[in-house]
Simulated scan of single mutants.
Amino acid sequence: MQILTAEARSYYLEKYPIDDFFSFDIDQFLEVCKFEKGEWIFKEGSFPDTLYYMIEGKAKLYMTHKNGKVSLIEYLEAPLFMGEIELLNEARYTKGIQTVTETICLSISQACKEKLLTDVLFLRKLCVFLGEKATIMTSKYTQNQAYPLENRLAAFIQLSSDQGIYKEKHTEICEYLGVSYRHLLYVLAQFCDEKILEKRKNGYHIINEKRLAHLAQEIQ
């Protein structure tokens, strides 16, 4: 993680103002930081002392089960809070969050934790965020039942690609989308045959964004 310079800080705070999230002056508790692609924002099992608000980028949320198996739970995309449950003390240890792209976050120190937990304006904002988050998670599970893989995979590729390239692990995505390895490979091959994707050494390149977007929009 890199704390950005005063100049970059001013740029991002002007571009993504969050003063209206709080009823007190948050500036003294706030930093703007950058995570490189593949960097861990939270390592699983840690207890974060920072609340992050992602303003640019994408990340993956992981969980390790008792049997040692690691599952991809959710793709995270700006704007969103990270570490909000830990702030509320509902979870002592966090799940793992790893960036998919270069990611810019506003970092809010828990030095102002008591102020945050008594700030009606902030808590109202957090409640709205948590409600929307729950709705999205419910929607994802119902989509797995209601739509064919072609639509769900198109939407997933849009979400997880970086600079027009999709290269997620097949086994991870099979579990996330609830499909067999064979079915996933079949649809990826179908997308290549239809010239939506092109398979190269560094991943699948999106060559027909319009067609991919059309398939994804079926479930939006």
Results as ranks from 00 to 15, higher is better:
K210G: 00
E77I: 04
K199W: 11
E175D: 09
A155T: 03
K169D: 15
K37C: 03
K69C: 04
S71R: 08
I104W: 03
L51Q: 09
S46M: 12
T142V: 08
L117F: 05
T118P: 00
M54F: 08
D193M: 06
E209Q: 14
E56A: 05
Y93C: 05
K167N: 13
R211M: 11
K140A: 15
Q158V: 00
L87H: 09
A154S: 07
V100I: 14
Y147V: 10
Y11Q: 12
C33N: 10
T171N: 05
N89I: 02
V70R: 12
F81E: 00
H183W: 12
S180M: 08
L185A: 03
K58I: 09
T64C: 07
A8L: 13
E14H: 10
T94C: 12
L123E: 07
F129R: 01
D25Q: 03
E36A: 08
D49A: 13
S109E: 02
I26H: 04
F42T: 06
Q163V: 14
F24E: 03
I196D: 00
E132W: 00
E132T: 04
K199T: 06
K210I: 07
K133E: 02
Y12P: 02
E102R: 10
R182Q: 15
A6F: 00
E194L: 15
E39D: 13
D27I: 12
K69R: 14
F42V: 09
Q158F: 02
Q217A: 15
F129Q: 02
E172W: 01
D49S: 12
T103N: 04
H183I: 08
E198N: 15
T138P: 02
P79A: 14
K60P: 01
R152D: 04
L212E: 00
A216I: 00
Q217V: 09
Q143K: 09
Q145N: 08
I157D: 02
F35H: 06
K113M: 14
E198M: 14
L121G: 06
K66M: 11
Q190S: 13
T99C: 11
E114L: 10
R211S: 05
C112F: 01
L51K: 08
M63L: 13
F22P: 01
Y176T: 06
K210P: 00
G68T: 04
L51E: 07
K140Q: 15
A213N: 12
D193A: 10
S71Y: 11
L88R: 10
Q143W: 01
K201E: 01
A111H: 14
S71H: 09
E90I: 14
T171A: 11
F47H: 12
